[in-house]
Write a protein that binds this DNA or RNA. Structure first.
Lengths: 206, 206
DNA sequence: TACATATGTAAGCAACACTAACTTAGAAAG
DNA sequence: CTTTCTAAGTTAGTGTTGCTTACATATGTA
């Protein structure tokens, strides 16, 4: 039994098995994607037995949901922080939010893909949907303020959706690495700026 | 031996096992995603033994590549057809190409996701990359003609990329079904038209 | 001490990718 | 028409992996 190696640190009651398991799964997803990871592997990584997770999660899908849930919070946090960094310039603010979104995808591509490709097992999860809407809300408020409208306005909704869509698509193309070889025509910040001005600019009304 | 049921139709030499296997895999991918399908299941669906595929494909990844390859052709065909349908109105042409892209994603979401998420096993495939670029070329030519520029122009590249990105992102959001419940602010054709005009419009230069 | 909670051990079992060896059918050659 | 060759399929495995459960064990709390 090669157990007593770091005896002092090994407590039976792990203390944060749930948290560390989620972290392990997150790392594995980054390597092999949402379908590639296995509970066993995550347990090995976290240093616990393969049965331990079932005290904290119902099944495989439930673990994934947990990972995505945390990721949603991180994403929204990053977007909000970017938004707060530009209290004056609304165009720059919108660009910064978009850049935060893209950076998140670039930094955690596996998780990012998981967040949106999670169709199996539970279809729509109430909680996740609400968090998705919250993220979009950050964009919406910035757009609305730029246009001098209330966030609930149809025009604010339309344009923030268009911008989100653009950023979302670019993120996917970036992480799918179609861009190293495919034509990435211009520095990213200039691209963001161009699109932002096109959609939000004075004569861009729909 | 319950074999002689449809004896007349069952030939030992299948004739088009490769083709039918690809079709079976395509259907399975639509249901369970690129990682969800199994060779065994595809064989069951195609009515052949589990070893048969190995005469035609090296391994699992090779089959996937085959499916994606065909899908690329279908996608480009649809885009080109949409382009050809509007010889006069260049704005309508660009919108139609985008709509064809979105329709493809909506109609074959699993395959669509597979086409772009295929990072495992072979990273970049020369052939697939070329086909991807060809699809983008359809957009690029339409955009260039609208702007009165050559397709190789940086501006044509930038704007066609921006449009592609937008359509790509919208497609993903559609197939991830974030849109039934999330805010889809306006009919799709109006959305496309608005964005097209914003990016391509006279005062949208970057 | 008694009970609840958290973790480990071990095993069931199902599925799958891939291989080896054999079989069939058609085609080419004589 | 027969022989022979080869491509395409089949049967029957092998080895691996993984999810999940039943039960044992350790720890915390009242």
């Amino acid at each position: 039994m090669p157990k007593p190696l770091i005896e002092s640190k090994k407590k039976y009651h792990h203390g944060d098995l749930r948290g560390q398991l989620l972290e392990a799964v997150r790392q594995l997803i980054e390597i092999s994607g949402p379908d590639g990871f296995s509970i066993s592997e995550a347990c090995r990584l976290a240093g616990v037995s393969t049965a331990a997770p079932y005290r904290h999660f119902a099944d495989r899908t439930d673990i994934l949901r947990g990972v995505v849930d945390l990721a949603m919070d991180r994403l929204q946090g990053a977007m909000q922080a970017a938004s707060d960094a530009y209290p004056d310039d609304t165009i720059a603010r919108v660009s910064a939010i978009g850049q935060a979104y893209i950076d998140f995808a670039r930094h955690e591509p596996g998780v990012f893909r998981t967040m949106f490709g999670l169709t199996e097992g539970h279809g729509q999860d109430e909680d996740l949907l609400r968090k998705g809407q919250a993220s979009l809300g950050v964009v919406r408020r910035a757009v609305a303020e730029h246009l001098g409208l209330a966030p609930e306005t149809p025009e604010a909704g339309l344009k923030s959706y268009a911008l989100w869509t653009f950023v979302h698509g670019h993120s996917f193309l970036v992480i799918d690495s179609k861009l190293e070889t495919l034509e990435m025509p211009v520095p990213e910040d200039r691209l963001l700026d161009m699109v932002g001005r096109s959609i939000l600019g004075p004569r861009a009304a729909g």
